[in-house]
Design a protein around this nucleic acid. Sequence first.
DNA 1: TCAAAAGTGTTATCCTTACACCCATGT
DNA 2: ACATGGGTGTAAGGATAACACTTTTGA
Lengths: 326, 326
Amino acid sequence: MNASVVIGLSAVVVACRDGEALVLTVRPQDAQTHRASALAGLPFGPFDPVADRTFELALRAFVAAQTRFELGYVEQLYTFGDKGRDAPLADIGAGAARVISVGYLALTPRPTDTSAPDTAWAPWSRYFPWEDWRRGRPRGIDQVIAPALAAWADRSDERAARARALFALDGQRWNPERVLDRYELLYEAGLAPEADRDRRRAQGLAAEEPAALSAALGEPMISDHRRILATGLGRLRGKLRYRPVAFELTPAEFTLSELQRVVESVAGVALHKQNFRRGVERTGLVEGLGRQDSDTGGRPAELFRFRRDGPNTGPATGLTLPLLRE
Amino acid sequence: MNASVVIGLSAVVVACRDGEALVLTVRPQDAQTHRASALAGLPFGPFDPVADRTFELALRAFVAAQTRFELGYVEQLYTFGDKGRDAPLADIGAGAARVISVGYLALTPRPTDTSAPDTAWAPWSRYFPWEDWRRGRPRGIDQVIAPALAAWADRSDERAARARALFALDGQRWNPERVLDRYELLYEAGLAPEADRDRRRAQGLAAEEPAALSAALGEPMISDHRRILATGLGRLRGKLRYRPVAFELTPAEFTLSELQRVVESVAGVALHKQNFRRGVERTGLVEGLGRQDSDTGGRPAELFRFRRDGPNTGPATGLTLPLLRE
DNA sequence: TCAAAAGTGTTATCCTTACACCCATGT
DNA sequence: ACATGGGTGTAAGGATAACACTTTTGA
């Protein structure tokens, strides 16, 4: 008998369209009914230790097979191995094995609709509605999340303090990057349906039908995919500020407003237009093309291009995020 | 027969002492001779998918068992799975299995000498001599590395450009965080003995005795451990600037000079004293204790303490690195 | 002509960098 | 007294944030 481990790969594939950040989702076939699952998940597949030379090659291959979509920029996110939160065994076609899942982040400028069945681009605010502050503080935080967390914290100061800091409760500042911490807090507080499901599974009970989907708490995903998605969003938000990743999400030519909408949809905050533009131009990561884009609704905007040979100077080359509204 | 994968865990355990950044190393027993290996490695051990609940718990347990040392701060680094660069099978006690290694970074303020045999704290400049710029540009870069890379680049502009950017060759700026890229470049160029070894193993040849250890190219390590170490150093350097990790490497009470020496030894650069101090005080991460430390050699220095309840304000709380010398 | 979006100018404030200088201790 | 390291003051330059304002298009 050899080690009873299988390695699963999952991909958070991100794109932007019409000012909305999207993530590629799939609805896997249910093992019993052979119909598409009620819950969505990330593209995922097994890693074959004999045939696959590297994780990344295996990932590119199965995402292409599953979604008919070729990946561009790819980076490893995290490897998840907690017992009790691993993928349901049926999902991955394994026997009685422990599943370790290696999550990847992939970015693409072209969210072409896939012709594959049961795959779709979904705005990620569907899974994390509390993360979108572009039109001000999301209602659900004060109306649903804060009261529920208060009840959970009860008389625990530590819990209450964490809730305040992560969800910007009593005048604290919102930190867009702590997506995973917020999701984990909701999970711990039992406000993510996944927590309930994992607990039942650990106790050998049958799975419940998913509870009514709360608009404030977001849709759940299969397995631990919402956790992987949270990791991806957090990483991407952080990286915006110190690596030129935003340009992996824009077409080859873009206006500065388009770039700003991409950054805003990922960071989930509204930015100050003029200062954003100045910030972008100061980096030297971008060059004007002299040509203009005229279907903007107002004055035509100059087209820009990312300079891949940008200045290596300085340890950090990313974009500044000049916040609007305080 | 089940999936032929085993998961290995490795730890980059970092501490600082006397202004030197140290890493915990072990010399594993050779399978044939039963004597300590000539090459050092990182503490590592297998992950047991049946018994171990999480990676982190397993890591803490085997590091304690192997080195008699308890870990404090721990974070996951990266999961390595490339074929041909995985751990030699004998090292991990596996059969004909593919080895996936999950690397962790651990920080500790107390580099107590372990009583365990064949474990030692080593300065990491032993493995990456080109990474220490505290006393100016390391000699080995111009005398050994640059000529060797030039020969390797030959007429390839792409190779030459990468070498220039990573090793700060023609007046380019040194970027302390790109430790892994530099190590990988040396590996690719055949300047790391590990590359030679991996190639021979892939071709089914016997392992060579390690070549003469060049002072400029650093000591090799077993398996892919030097790559994991490079990942850890790079991550830690980057994190210094936006998370309060430096305080995981200092004792509970410290002078600002001690803190500066810790940061300098990790970042591998010399910092401007006055501006560093101002930078630290501005963060509000630290509070003076009124008491003083008198064995400094000059005027006694005030003792400070890290405020774990530091201000959550702002997305980034780390230290500024005001460079000395240009 | 007006709405909409692009783009410019200006200012106060803060952070960074750099330089010069004083302070307290041990030998 | 003087060497050594700790600590303060100040000023220039750049980045940021917050204003108000002009320009160019389509309807």
